[in-house]
Every structure is written in structure tokens, then in C-alpha cells.
């Protein structure tokens, strides 16, 4: 029996299912991975109102100094991030900032440092369904620069470089890791390449900033290291500061 539609379900269908419209979201969509990180982010947004709660994902929209900002836990993995990114892109999100975590692939990057993705190595299973091998996934330059400037303004140590995204957290073997590090990756996560690729396909500006939870090269684990949790809070503050910088720059341009 032939399938009746060219595609079973789209991001637009999902947005409709949760009654989300373009006017419901802010100019900036900030997407941490976990609900805990979302909770910390929402506390810093003024007058947050829930847009929807679906499966394990929740979206709020509020304000930051008069600018509408949306916060949503986008997921910890490529599969669920693809869904949440599709939803926001289908309601015409303008800017997406991913707040994630990662493992460092160079010894000099410490638990608690921040990484800003300049480019990615697509190692997950989602993006082959969207783009071919030659496609170059890149974050938005302006958004990335704003995050860099925000970090500098706040005196936060930030590393910029290539991020390798994988689905196989427990198969970060010596051989594979060294190959990716050899290809220039400074960090590994499970989300950046999916989010940035889908955003790029939809021509939505996107950037990815990550808190270092562990160091893959040295074996240092950071999940009970307070530096990692402090970095998560710092990362949220950097994203919000970047929004302010972008908005202030816009005001300055208009003058």
C-alpha cells in the first residue's frame, strides 16, 4: 500500500499540534538541553508564560529588558533536538541559541570552561536525512560573535572551535576520539550538529555554546564538579548578555 502523504509528520504539524504560532515566540529562542537548565534560564526571564508542554519538552516566552525571549528545553540528544528545532523553525524563529554541555578533546580545556562552536563534524544519525555529506554546517556568524563578545564583556573564558556531535556517548573510543581530535574537533557533544544543520536548512540563525562537563582526553569527570554547574549558570548569563548586546547594537544602528 502506498503512503498517502510525502512525509508523515512535519515540524509544522507538530507546531500546530501544540497550538504554537509565529507570534507566540520571541525574537530569540534559547534552547538548553535539560529541564533543570531550562528552569534556571526561565528564572532570569521577566514575565515568562508557558507556551506548551509536550512529551518532556516545555516552552516559555517572556521578556528580557523589553525584548521577547523564548526558552525551551530542546533535548539532550539529536533525535529529540531535531523535533524541537523543527518546531521552532516552523514558527519562524529568528535566532536560536543552544545551551549545551560537552566533553573537551584537548587537555588544556578544563571542566567548567565554555566552548563556542565555530563549525561541526556531523557524527549523529539525524542529519543524513536532511543534508548530504558535502554540506557544510556552520553557525550564524553574527550570533556567534555576539556570544563571544558577551563572554569577553563578562570576563568568561571561552574556547572557539570545531565540535563533533555523536549519538554514541559510550563509544567514544580512543581510535574514534583521536581521529576527530585530529580532524580539529575541540569538543564532543550530542546535539550541536543537528540543531545547527536543521536551522541552516530553514535559514534560521543559530549558534551553540557548551559547558564542559568532562575531559575525554584526560578522563576527568565533572558531573559532581561544581565548576561544571557554575559554567551552566555562566553560559545562561552569556546567552542573555548576547541578546542584550545584539539589541543594543540594533538600537545603535538605527541611530
Amino acid at each position: 500500500m502506498p503512503m498517502r502523504k510525502p512525509i508523515h509528520m512535519t515540524g509544522k504539524d507538530l507546531a500546530g499540534m501544540v497550538q504554537l504560532r509565529a507570534q507566540d515566540i520571541g525574537k530569540y529562542v534559547i534552547m538548553p538541553g535539560t529541564p533543570d537548565r531550562l528552569e534556571a534560564l526561565v528564572k532570569k526571564i521577566q514575565n515568562p508564560m508557558k507556551n506548551f508542554s509536550f512529551m518532556e519538552h516545555t516552552m516559555y516566552t517572556g521578556e528580557l529588558d523589553g525584548v521577547r525571549v523564548t526558552a525551551m528545553n530542546g533535548g539532550m540528544f539529536s533525535a529529540n533536538t531535531a523535533i524541537t528545532t523543527e518546531i521552532v523553525c516552523n514558527v519562524e524563529a529568528q535566532n536560536i541559541i543552544r545551551l549545551g554541555s560537552c566533553g573537551a578533546l584537548t587537555e588544556d580545556i578544563k571542566v567548567g570552561d565554555l566552548i563556542l562552536a565555530d563549525s561541526v563534524i556531523r557524527g549523529e544519525g539525524v542529519t543524513p536525512y536532511y543534508v548530504d555529506e558535502e554540506f557544510e554546517t556552520l553557525p550564524d556568524e553574527g550570533l556567534t560573535r555576539a556570544l563571544q563578545e558577551a563572554a569577553e564583556k563578562m570576563g568568561v573564558k571561552l574556547h572557539r572551535g570545531k565540535v563533533w556531535s555523536t549519538d554514541a556517548l559510550l563509544r567514544e573510543t580512543k581510535e574514534i576520539v583521536e581521529e576527530k581530535a585530529g580532524a580539529g574537533a575541540i569538543a564532543v557533544d550530542m546535539v550541536s550538529s543537528t540543531l545547527l544543520t536543521i536551522a541552516q536548512v530553514y535559514k534560521t540563525k543559530a549558534a551553540s555554546i557548551l559547558a564542559v562537563s568532562d575531559n575525554v582526553m584526560t578522563g576527568e569527570m565533572g558531573f559532581t564538579n561544581p565548576a561544571y554547574y557554575i559554567a551552566q549558570t555562566t553560559m545562561i548569563n552569556v546567552a542573555l548578555e548576547a541578546v542584550k548586546l545584539l539589541e543594543n547594537a540594533k538600537i545603535a544602528d538605527n541611530k
Binding site: 535539560t34 537548565r37 534556571a40 559532581t224 564538579n225 561544581p226 557554575i230 551552566q232 549558570t233
Partner: peptide
Amino acid sequence: FSKPGRIHRILESNFDPLAKKCFQDVMNNV
């Protein structure tokens, strides 16, 4: 000590910095 919500609550609280440092010290030593 692996509940991010709790950790954020403490680090973002109005507690004296001495209390936050103590929390970090305990976490470091888990």
C-alpha cells in the same frame, strides 16, 4: 549531589558566598 536543579538553586541563591563555597567544596569531594 547530581541534581542540577538543586545546584542551580544554591549557586543562584542569596546565600552568603561562604555557604556557596562550602557547597562547592563538599561537591568537589563527593
